[in-house]
Design a protein around this nucleic acid. Structure first.
Lengths: 211, 211
DNA sequence: TCTTGATTGAACCGATCGGTCAAAACATCG
DNA sequence: CGATGTTTTGACCGATCGGTTCAATCAAGA
């Protein structure tokens, strides 16, 4: 076993992927040229095509990596231990921590979701498992249909988590202090926990009302 | 006073603006070429520059129109009549109705917020009044600082409203039924109202705890 | 040493982009 | 009608894009 690198796991190909990760996250698909990626990776442009075939393929790969990383990050929080509230807090924390450590992810996702109807299938592929999974857990405390169904809370919470990081930079000047600072993120986490508690309370009262 | 049209309010310039509105909203700045806009407006490409100078200027104009329309839509819900809960419900409804009637607006906004650091100042200009305004109302029921401060709820609610419309199309297949249908939107409105009630309840209990 | 795959450099392609320009077309007024 | 000022057009420009090609290097395995 020598050092001759095989395709797709050579050092150079990793550099390219890393550069693509960063640039696509920062400025989006249209804002980045293959030349930019090659330059950032310190690599010849032709090599990008040599390894990944096309700009689209490279982008898809970056997106998929993000989504599976997201799923992996959430998996660790899936343990059934603790009270219901504790479990939801853990999921929220995992979500927040992941985004906190991958600031480009929410931007990339929002951009994609809000983008045209083109890449819709790709987003769906990445988002579906996350959705179904979270929905299953939420179903324990939610009615199956109506305004309190799991899917509504899924949107509400994913919005509450993600939009904090996407809107944060915009509103920072009105904020006083950086919304991305550790203290600020901790405060946001507390807000979300409080929200979870209040909602669980409300749902419980709701089901009492039913019986 | 004859019918010689002055620049910027001629029929053609309105057609151009309309086409730009639609296309920028659908596919975003980078996804649209000036040729596309001209074609959709049924007009020569050069005329776009004749009236609006540049693609950037036209885009700014479209964005500003969206933001002021948003502010106008919310203004109608600002009346002080009714209970606190009623007033918040009214604001939510106004927000939902506006987006419901301008489906491209949330996509454009999300795309812009998640975009690079370039257009940040432009977004800020449009979003600041909306933020300050809503924050003032929220301040009646929120502590000034900490996890329950107004700004946290602003993000949470704007996310809960906006993301429903941006994520809706993506999750539609898992949903069963169109999330954009009138019934579905009504159900979402009910979800948000419930959320408002539960949160107001929680905040009240919180302030009781303090005293 | 010879072979094979990784990597580079540069030139090149067709397509598309935002933007310009000068002339045509038009409407209006004298 | 002709003069005048505006609106509209089509052709054109340079730049950039994604992608290809090909000859030249380089390193390591056989």
């Amino acid at each position: 076993m020598t050092r001759r690198p095989k395709a797709k796991d050579s050092e150079r190909s990793a550099q390219i992927l890393e550069a693509a990760d960063a640039l696509f996250g920062e400025v989006g698909f249209d804002g980045v040229s293959v030349r930019d990626i090659a330059e950032r990776a310190g690599v010849n442009k032709a090599l990008v095509f040599y390894y990944y075939g096309s700009k689209d393929a490279l982008f898809e790969l970056v997106v998929e990596r993000f989504y599976t990383a997201h799923a992996d990050a959430l998996a660790s929080a899936f343990a059934a231990e603790g009270s219901q509230a504790e479990r939801f807090h853990r999921m929220i924390d995992a979500y927040v921590d992941f985004i906190d450590a991958n600031r480009n992810y929410p931007r990339l996702m929002q951009r994609q979701v809000a983008g045209g109807t083109e890449g819709l299938e790709l987003i769906r592929k990445g988002l579906t498992p996350l959705f179904e999974w979270t929905e299953r857990i939420l179903s324990e405390v939610c009615p199956e249909r109506g305004p309190l169904a799991a899917r509504h809370f899924w949107i509400t919470f994913s919005g509450a988590v993600i939009n904090y990081f996407t809107y944060g930079p915009v509103l920072a000047p009105l904020w006083g202090g950086d919304p991305g600072s550790p203290q600020a993120v901790t405060e946001r986490r507390a807000h979300l926990h409080w929200l979870v508690d209040v909602i669980l309370d409300g749902l419980e009262r709701e089901s009492d009302k039913q019986e």
